[in-house]
Design a protein around this nucleic acid. Structure first.
Lengths: 129, 129
DNA sequence: TTGACAAGTTAGCTCCCGCTAACTATAATG
DNA sequence: CATTATAGTTAGCGGGAGCTAACTTGTCAA
């Protein structure tokens, strides 16, 4: 079961929610992403059977190592890409939205290259004209 | 009928094929994209009814104004993003593949910002460290 | 003329991933 | 205790976009 863009989004959301609250349930994901409960329910089932998350009796969701790895990878892309776009003069909202889509479509190689460039340009400052 | 990523890819491919040969048929698209004839047939039908292409009696496909606008927009993104990634040290193949996916997910705002930055950095040269 | 190939279409399948409607199970509350 | 709210699940729909199998059509060469 290879992860789709959709699965990556769920994992990233679980990571983010976990930073904000002590536990994450399906309903929290549902509210955060604006998806219906059944949609989340199915996604959670798939991620669980794929070994990306665990769900305890109380319905609390936790990332496994595999899930955390994916979530952190995507989250890093999201953060850096957003920053970068903002530095280039894009408004926060647009930057975040775009980063949110691009983060799933960029290869490790390209992302590392961008990261290197951003780093070299003085902690991103050179990205602002 | 709003254009999906898939539709954009077909239009871009038609544009590119048109630069290489005098006419473009469904079969050419099929070979270029590696998709089956029925898949292309359906896509062509949708693009036609969406007003993005015209198909003459001989099966030759041409972009309408609307189709050309989309194709050129996507193609410009493709070209610039690929160049950029290559400048950052990414190999041609990876750069092109990534550009090919990102080109459909970036907003006009962000793309313009990147373009501006690339332009200012001395015709992309500053992108290479 | 006939037979073969090339191009395109039709029918129908699969997977992904949203959705609603409706049900279940568990608390919380009057 | 009965009611209501909350959380989750099941069943089934719809649209996007690939695929194969099989059919049609037109052209061209033996």
């Amino acid at each position: 079961m290879a992860l789709q863009e959709s699965g990556e989004m769920y994992l990233e959301t679980i990571l983010i929610l976990g930073k904000r609250r002590s536990f994450v349930r399906a309903i929290d994901i549902s509210e955060e992403m604006g998806y219906s409960k059944p949609s989340v329910s199915r996604a959670v089932g798939l991620l669980k059977s794929g070994g990306y998350i665990t769900v305890d009796d109380g319905g609390c969701i936790a990332l496994t190592e595999a899930g955390l790895a994916v979530a952190e990878k995507i989250y890093e892309r999201h953060t850096l890409l957003t920053e970068l776009l903002v530095c280039l003069g894009v408004d926060e909202k647009t930057a975040a939205d775009d980063a949110c889509r691009i983060e799933h479509h960029i290869s490790d190689k390209s992302f590392e290259a961008i990261k290197r460039h951003a780093g070299q340009s003085g902690e991103h400052k050179r990205w602002s004209k």
